[in-house]
Amino acid sequence: MSYLTDSPLTIEPLLDEVRSPERGGIASFLGVVRSELGGRAVLRLEYSAYREMAEAECARVVAEAEARWPVKVGLRHRLGTLEVGETAVIVIAAGGHRDEAFLACRQVIEALKRRVPIWKREHYADGGLDWVDPGALAPEQG
C-alpha cells in the first residue's frame, strides 16, 4: 500500500479500505486544486515529493491518529501535474461515531500539511511560475 500516487484520485476505493459494519461514522476531507492564489489565476499545480520520507511520514501520521482515536484512517496524496478542480489529497476517518471520525480526519490533514515532505509549483494564467510557501501566505490559503 502506498500513500502517494501518480494517478487521479477517487474517493470510493479509499472508502472501501476503511468501511466496516461497526464503523458507523465516516468523515472525509478532499483537497482540490483551487483556481486562484493570492489574487492570481492558477492554471495547474505540479506536486513533487521526497517520496521515501513522505511515505514514512504519512504512515506515522496515520498511526498517531489511529492510536489516539478508535478509527481507521485512509490517506492518499497525488503527485504530478494537476489541473484546477482535480483532487490532490483525500483523508477518510471511519469510527464508531462521528466525533472521533471528524477529529481524526482534521488531525491527519493538518499533520500532513505540517510534516509530510511534498511541494507544489503553481502555473499562473499570467505565465508566472512559483513554488508555493504556505508560511508566506495567510493560513487559510495554505
Binding site: 496524496h77 500539511k113 515532505p117
Partner: peptide, 10 residues
C-alpha cells in the same frame, strides 16, 4: 540527510 524547502502538501 535531506534539506527540505517549506512543505506544501495538501
Amino acid at each position: 540527510v535531506a534539506i527540505l524547502p517549506p512543505l506544501a502538501g495538501g
